[in-house]
Amino acid sequence: MLKLKDIHAYYGQAHILADVSLEVNAGEVVVLLGRNGAGKSTTMKSIIGLVKPAKGEVTFQGARIEQMAPYKIARLGLGYVPEERRIFTELTVLENLEVGRQAPRAGVPTWDWDKIARLFPNLGEMPQRPGGRMSGGEQQMLTIARTLMGNPACILLDEPSEGVAPVIVDQMAAAILELKSQGVAILLSEQNLHFAAEVADRAYIIEKGRIRFSGTMAELEADAEAQQQYLAV
């Protein structure tokens, strides 16, 4: 479904990503683990086009996308949920969802307000609430819901558990598993190994812009050395 091959990315002169390759298959939840500054967010941004890779290939459902504008990539059915949430605070919940809305796509689940309200009952109770007057947890749900309105085949979730209460982290995990059961592929970036273990099938570890580990979640959990070395657990 989504494939990165030998991606290099720079911020100014700083070499942020070197030879990053990874793959997400249909219906799979894959986690990209690594500490802060390891290159997780940059990887996500180079997939969605917010950072242009200097070298390498990104393929999504057979199409080369590494030089495409973000909106074109999003229209292919690749959704992006940023780390800082970035909801539109002046817009109501419904208007936030409207910004993310795209036409239905063949072969992937189609989302509407009723379905969103079932997935996130909290949101269902506040259609007219402005984004700025929602709690942190509610905003986290809204940012995922907004991306779902684009009927994505695959979602990039950047650190959904960062900076939210543990009880919200539980809800995030439940939502991710629900999406998976509906057939949406997910690439997740995380620092939190416990959270990753709960939802992911496979894992990559990124460190200083390079992929250092790749394997199933079970393999990673058995590999104390990799955990120690790259995740500083």
């Binding site: 969605i48 504008a69 909106y71 999003a74 940023p82 539109f88 208007e95 936030n96 910004v99 993310g100």
Partner: peptide
């Protein structure tokens, strides 16, 4: 209108509007 909602969204965060599939150019 949808155009209006997009304008208001872009007023806050135009990059995000682009990442949601809107041709912000």
């Amino acid at each position: 209108t949808r155009f209006g909602v997009l304008i208001r969204a872009a007023t806050e965060d135009r990059e995000m509007v682009g990442a949601l599939g809107v041709n912000q150019a």
